[in-house]
Simulated assay, not measured.
Amino acid sequence: MRVNKLKERKRRRLVRIVWSIVAVIVIGVGLYGLNVYLSLNSALETMHQPIEKSDKREQEVSITKKDPFSILLLGIDESENDVGRSDTLIVTTVNPEDNTIKMLSIPRDTRTEIIGNGTVEKINHAYARGGVEMAIDTVEHFLDIPIDYYVQVNMEGFQGIIDAFNGVTVDNDMDLSHNKYKFPKGKIHLTGEEALVFSRIRKGDPRGDFGRQVRQKQIIQAIVNEAKSLSSLWNYDDVFKSLGDNVRTNISFKEMVSLQQQYKSLKTNIEQLQFEKFNGGYIGKYWYFFPDEQEVKDYQQLFKEHLGLL
């Protein structure tokens, strides 16, 4: 009898210990989840910068409603005393019904009218003249389509974001080097500093600015892939802080969630586009990229159809 009571007391003690451990785990997970939420919420509040609806839209579109929409990605090179220029301009259109994405890189030296400034100069000067709004207006005029959303990334910020993910992996399509940096052909893992150099190389690539555009898209794709990984949550504080410091967008959190869900099914249907017909030359002391007028019209037509505007 005494032995049975002793066994029962041990069993109860063991149950209490197990429940105490479970309670600690539940509380720990809850606190971790709360910290993640608060850190994410703080970053999103800083990142979210709304803009007015495009004049080329009669009605607002919404990612959550699965409307076809467009996004302008602006990679900004800026220093402490310089507002910077948009050295990366990538127009992306998404058609959820067709399950397709089209991405077009616009060379930064493209000569075009800067809308709202009354000048004709390099398209990357639009951001320097009038910020995101002027950059969007200029791209809308150039491609004759509405820009519904934008994502502005400080190029220097790529470094912090990538380091927060402990680096990214890309499939490099050719041997490249720049000063002390060597980038062999094939799959390579890059730190933030290496990725920044990798994305900026032009003179070492026979494709010039087009090669740079390819690598910038690879880095963006790699960051998106890392962001989808659960392991990245262990560095959530660094990730969210870096995002909050270096990214501005008018995409809301609800739309981000919807976009991420759509991306899962769209990621294999991305068509990468670039200008194939062009001339280049100097006007005064500045070199310009002169796109072929017919190719510009063809892309205008293509994007209008993809956005369901025709």
Rank of each mutant, 00 (worst) to 15 (best):
M1K: 11
L6V: 15
K7N: 14
K7W: 10
R9K: 13
R11P: 13
V18F: 01
W19L: 15
S20D: 06
I21A: 12
V22T: 05
V22C: 07
G33C: 05
G33V: 03
L34G: 08
L34F: 08
L38M: 14
S39G: 10
L40E: 15
N41P: 09
S42P: 03
A43I: 00
E45T: 07
T46P: 08
M47Y: 01
Q49L: 09
E52Q: 10
S54V: 04
R57F: 11
R57V: 11
E60D: 11
E60T: 05
S62E: 00
T64R: 09
L74C: 02
G75D: 01
D77I: 12
N81P: 06
V83R: 12
T88K: 09
I90N: 03
V91T: 14
T92N: 11
E97H: 15
T100H: 06
I101M: 03
I101A: 01
K102V: 12
M103F: 14
I106P: 00
I114W: 00
I115M: 13
T119R: 15
V120H: 05
K122W: 10
N124T: 05
R129L: 14
G130A: 00
A135P: 02
D137N: 11
I147K: 04
Y150K: 04
V151H: 06
N154V: 12
N154R: 12
N166S: 13
V168K: 01
T169N: 03
D171M: 09
D171P: 07
M174K: 15
D175R: 10
D175G: 05
D175A: 04
H178I: 11
K187E: 14
I188N: 09
H189A: 13
L190D: 03
T191F: 04
T191G: 06
T191C: 03
A195T: 03
V197N: 06
V197F: 00
S199H: 02
K203F: 13
G204K: 08
D205F: 00
D205R: 04
R207H: 07
R207T: 07
G208Y: 01
D209T: 02
G211V: 02
V214I: 10
R215E: 08
R215C: 09
V224F: 06
N225E: 13
S231Q: 11
S232W: 07
S232K: 04
W234S: 15
G244W: 10
I251M: 10
I251P: 03
E255A: 02
M256R: 02
Q261V: 09
Q262S: 10
Y263H: 04
K264R: 12
N269K: 10
I270Q: 05
F275K: 01
F275D: 00
G284A: 07
G284M: 09
Y286I: 15
F290W: 08
F290I: 02
V296F: 01
V296T: 07
Q300F: 00
F303R: 04
E305A: 11
